[in-house]
Design a protein around this nucleic acid. Sequence first.
DNA 1: CTGATGACGGTGC
DNA 2: GGCACCGCCATCA
Length: 125
Amino acid sequence: MVPPRAIFDLIYDLVILVPAGNVATYGQISRYVAGSTPRIVGFAMAGVKPGLGVPWQRVINARGEISPHGGAGGSGLQREILEAEGIAFDARGRIDLKRFGWAGPDDDWLKRHDIDVEHLMGKDR
DNA sequence: CTGATGACGGTGC
DNA sequence: GGCACCGCCATCA
């Protein structure tokens, strides 16, 4: 387990787990972080500072598209990075979550961060 | 302390 | 499929 941390830090730890070539949604991330909501996750991404090693570009909305924003180079740069990582966009600029969606953190990680797995089962997964 | 503010999501039409 | 609402809650001024 890990000492209590700012909720943003926990979100960042989770985002760091998303491997290149995969994407996670704001809602998906929020389901693993108690006290967070999709909006909080979005807010956390907006607060990411360059150089922290947080792959913020791999977090997109539930519809599989990049939400317009102006942080860290903007949504345009975000798309470039994702394409470079092998993510494919369709004609409408959307990503197929079936193909590129992240499976979620492994049980070991959940345990280390003291996440209540049963709490997750009730919500989804 | 109080109010405003979001890189969102689900529901209903 | 698209669009308008409402709920959400940590942060910040």
